[in-house]
Amino acid sequence: DNLVIALHSYEPSHDGDLGFEKGEQLRILEQSGEWWKAQSLTTGQEGFIPFNFVAKA
């Protein structure tokens, strides 16, 4: 599955970004460039995340 774990917390800075906490698990929905579309397994919310803040779970 496309699961990743957050290496750092991220505060959203643009509409459509997904904020998350360090250690949170996310499911990657789309990989494109440096911003990936993801869904939080904690909150169920979707949005874009910086790819370098996460690692394969």
Rank of each mutant, 00 (worst) to 15 (best):
V4A: 08
Y10S: 02
L18T: 01
S13Y: 12
D17S: 09
G16F: 12
D15K: 12
Q39T: 06
E30M: 08
D15M: 11
S40W: 01
S9K: 12
P12W: 05
F51S: 15
E11L: 12
Q25H: 13
E30A: 09
K37L: 15
S40L: 05
I49A: 00
E21D: 08
V4Q: 04
S32R: 12
K56V: 13
P12T: 06
S13E: 14
E21V: 14
L41C: 13
S13H: 15
L26N: 00
S32P: 04
E30P: 02
W36G: 04
Y10C: 07
Q45H: 11
E34G: 09
Q39S: 06
R27N: 05
A38G: 05
E46S: 13
I49Q: 00
T43K: 02
A57M: 14
K37H: 09
A38F: 03
A55C: 14
G44V: 01
Q31L: 06
H8P: 02
W35N: 06
N2Y: 14
K22Q: 10
E30G: 08
N52W: 15
D1S: 10
W35K: 12
N52T: 10
L26V: 02
G33W: 03
Q45P: 00
A55Y: 10
L29Q: 03
G19V: 05
L3H: 06
T42R: 14
L41P: 05
I5R: 06
L26R: 00
D1H: 11
A57D: 10
T43G: 03
G16M: 08
E46T: 15
H8F: 14
L29M: 07
D1P: 09
P50K: 06
L29C: 06
D17I: 08
S9F: 07
H14F: 10
G44L: 09
H14E: 08
P50E: 06
G47P: 00
W35V: 08
E24L: 02
F20K: 00
Q25D: 03
R27T: 05
E34F: 15
V54K: 00
G16W: 15
D17N: 10
H14I: 09
A38H: 01
G23E: 03
L3C: 07
H8D: 08
F51V: 11
F20T: 01
E46K: 12
D1M: 11
K37C: 12
K56D: 11
Q39D: 01
E11A: 13
L29I: 11
T42F: 08
T42V: 14
L26E: 01
H8C: 15
Q25P: 10
A6E: 02
I5S: 03
D17Y: 15
F53C: 15
E21W: 07
S32T: 13
T43Y: 01
S32G: 11
K37E: 03
I5L: 07
G19I: 04
W36P: 04
D15G: 09
E11P: 07
N52H: 12
S32E: 12
K22S: 06
E34H: 14
A57C: 14
L7I: 11
T42A: 14
N52I: 07
Y10F: 12
Q31E: 11
F51D: 08
G44I: 02
I28T: 01
V4K: 02
L18V: 03
A6N: 01
S9E: 05
P50C: 14
Q31W: 13
W36D: 01
F51P: 15
N2T: 11
S32D: 12
S40G: 01
L41D: 02
E34I: 13
T42W: 11
L29W: 04
R27D: 01
L26S: 00
P50Q: 06
A57E: 11
P50M: 04
H14L: 08
G16D: 09
G23N: 05
L29S: 02
G19F: 07
A6L: 04
D17R: 09
L26G: 00
V4E: 01
S40E: 01
E34W: 12
T43L: 01
E24P: 01
L3G: 02
T42K: 15
G47N: 00
I28A: 00
I28V: 10
A6G: 05
T42P: 03
A6P: 00
E21G: 08
G23M: 03
R27S: 04
H14D: 09
Q25C: 15
S13Q: 15
G23A: 03
Y10N: 02
V54R: 00
E21R: 14
D1I: 11
F48R: 11
Q39H: 06
Q25Y: 15
F48Y: 14
I5A: 03
N52V: 06
E21H: 13
K22V: 09
P12E: 03
D15W: 12
E30V: 09
E46F: 12
Q31C: 15
T42I: 13
K56A: 13
L7E: 05
V54E: 05
Y10D: 00
K37N: 05
E46N: 06
A55L: 08
A38V: 14
Q25F: 15
W36C: 10
L26W: 01
F48P: 01
I49L: 04
E21N: 10
H8M: 14
D17W: 14
D1K: 08
E46V: 15
P12K: 07
V54F: 07
F53Y: 14
L3F: 11
P12G: 08
D1C: 15
N52C: 15
L29K: 04
S32C: 15
S32Q: 13
N2S: 10
E11T: 15
W36Y: 10
A57Y: 13
K37S: 05
Q31R: 13
F20P: 00
Q31S: 12
A38Y: 03
Q45Y: 09
N2C: 15
L7G: 02
E24A: 06
A55W: 07
H14W: 10
G44D: 05
N2I: 14
L18I: 08
K22T: 06
E24H: 05
Q39E: 08
S40Q: 03
K56I: 12
A38L: 07
Q25S: 10
W35P: 01
F48D: 06
Q31G: 08
K37V: 11
Q39F: 08
G47F: 05
E11M: 13
F48L: 11
F20S: 00
W35L: 08
L18P: 00
E34V: 13
W36T: 07
F48V: 07
A57H: 11
I28M: 03
L26Q: 00
G47V: 03
G19T: 06
A57F: 13
E46L: 12
T42M: 11
I49H: 01
Q39R: 10
L29V: 08
Q25K: 14
F51L: 09
P12I: 06
L7N: 04
F51H: 15
Q45W: 07
G47D: 00
E34S: 12
G23W: 05
L41G: 02
S9N: 11
F53M: 11
S9H: 09
S40D: 02
Y10A: 02
A38T: 01
I49Y: 03
P50T: 10
E24I: 02
F20Q: 00
A57G: 09
E11C: 14
V54H: 02
E34Y: 15
W35M: 12
G33F: 03
D1E: 12
L18R: 01
Q31A: 13
E24D: 11
D15E: 13
V4H: 08
Q45N: 10
L26K: 00
I5W: 07
Q45I: 09
A6M: 06
P12F: 04
A38C: 06
D17Q: 15
T43F: 00
W35I: 08
E30Y: 11
D1L: 10
P50A: 03
Q39C: 08
F48T: 08
W35D: 03
E30Q: 10
L26D: 00
T43D: 05
F53H: 09
K22Y: 06
G44W: 06
A57V: 15
L41Q: 05
E24F: 02
S9T: 12
E11G: 06
E11D: 08
L26M: 08
S40F: 02
D15H: 12
S32N: 14
Q39P: 01
Q31V: 09
A55M: 12
F53A: 09
R27W: 10
A38R: 00
Q25I: 15
E30I: 09
S13T: 14
N2P: 06
F20E: 01
E46G: 03
R27E: 03
